[in-house]
Amino acid sequence: MFLEVTKQLCIGFGMTLKLFSLTLLFSLPLGLIISFGSMSKFKPLKWFTKVFVWIIRGTPLMLQLIVIYFGPGLIGAWAQGQIANGSTGAFINFMATFKVFDRFAAVLIAFVINYACYFSEIYRGGIESIPVGQYEAGQVLGMTKSQIFFKVVLLQVIKRIVPPMSNEIITLVKDTSLARIIAVYEIIWSAQVFIKQAGLLWPLFYTGAFYLAFSGLLTILFGYIEKKMDYFRS
């Protein structure tokens, strides 16, 4: 039985890891773009970004998951109802094509947007904490803006944001369990199957070991990265 449970949980954890790594892959660069938006000198873009980040950070991830999963389907159904009542137009026809997302795609989109917003604030904090003297030193040496960002500032920002990033990324490991809300077969769901089918509760507790092992691994990895950058102080 133990082996059977382990096998099922491994399959579930595979999905957890897939969600985790794809979320990071997309949200890390997207967060940087959002952070540039929130630091933009173009006011409308700045405020739009700030309001967006406020909405995403200010509502539960679980709610965002549900909205993204069911939202398009609801819009599609509403538009089809309007057409049935005699409405016409390209836009309403377009909206009528909206369907419920694929479960995994919905979860991924919600996670990427949510985490990109949190990351964007970490990036912003990191970028704004670099002393203006570093930019000025690059400037008087005739460096271009992008040279200053990539050759002077970026590594210093990375050094500063590793601790808060590791915090956020470890939170992500555990947040993936929210995917079960819309029935994505991740590790918690796979453990709950045993409750329903065999009346076994312990597989659910056993999932904790998977999370612990993985976040332990990440902790070691981030500790290593921090140590790697110990050679300079900024």
């Binding site: 003297g133 210093q156 050094k159």
Partner: peptide
């Protein structure tokens, strides 16, 4: 860039690149 390269600047706080 051309203008800036005519002049060199040494700052009060050095502003060396730490990395």
């Amino acid at each position: 860039q051309e203008m800036q390269l005519l002049f060199g600047m040494v700052f009060q706080n050095f502003n060396l690149f730490p990395q």
